[in-house]
Structures are given as structure tokens and as C-alpha cells.
């Protein structure tokens, strides 16, 4: 599946993983936290295929998951 990261996460989740296979968003976050521990230091919400999700959501290999932190600059 495709993982997209934005804002402060672009420095942390680098290089972007392209080989992640998992069943749901909780598993995905677990895998990402293991690979990029600094991800735990920030806040973000999750969107699956362009839609914000709040609960653990099942994932298909063709899905796109976005991790979106808030931005503060202006």
C-alpha cells in the first residue's frame, strides 16, 4: 500500500516505506513506529483513501494511507 506523510513527518518517515503489507491502520502505525521511532514524538491524524479515519480501519494492498500532522506556521 502507499503511505503518504506530510509536514513534520516528512523528516521523520524518510525514506518513505514502499514495501509495507499489513491488515489495518493499527498494524501500520505499529510497523512505522518500530521503523521510525521519532514518529511517536509528534501528533497526526490518519486518512485512508482521502478520508479521515478515527477507528482502526482494515486496509487493502491498493489503499493509500496519509498521516497528517497539524501545521503551525504562518
Amino acid at each position: 500500500m502507499q503511505v503518504l506523510v506530510f509536514g513534520s513527518l516528512t523528516d521523520i518517515v524518510a525514506p518513505l516505506p514502499n514495501d509495507i503489507i499489513c491488515d489495518n491502520t493499527e498494524q501500520l502505525i505499529g510497523l512505522l513506529e518500530a521503523k521510525y521511532p521519532a514518529i511517536k514524538t509528534t501528533t497526526y491524524f490518519i486518512a485512508v483513501n482521502g478520508k479521515m479515519v478515527r477507528e482502526n480501519t482494515s486496509l487493502q494492498p491498493t489503499d493509500t494511507v496519509a498521516l497528517m500532522p497539524p501545521f503551525s506556521g504562518g
Binding site: 509536514g7 513534520s8 514524538t41 509528534t42 501528533t43 491524524f45 479521515m52 500532522p69 497539524p70 501545521f71 503551525s72 506556521g73 504562518g74
Partner: peptide
């Protein structure tokens, strides 16, 4: 609704820190 926790933003950097 989108970013419910103000405290969780403490570690997000500003333009002053991160550039723009």
C-alpha cells in the same frame, strides 16, 4: 475535531524553528 489535543502540538516546530 481534526486536532483534538492542544498539548500534542507541543513538539511541532514553527517557521522560526523549521523554516518556510
Amino acid at each position: 475535531d481534526v486536532f483534538p489535543d492542544p498539548a500534542a502540538t507541543a513538539n511541532i516546530q514553527s517557521c522560526e524553528q523549521a523554516g518556510v
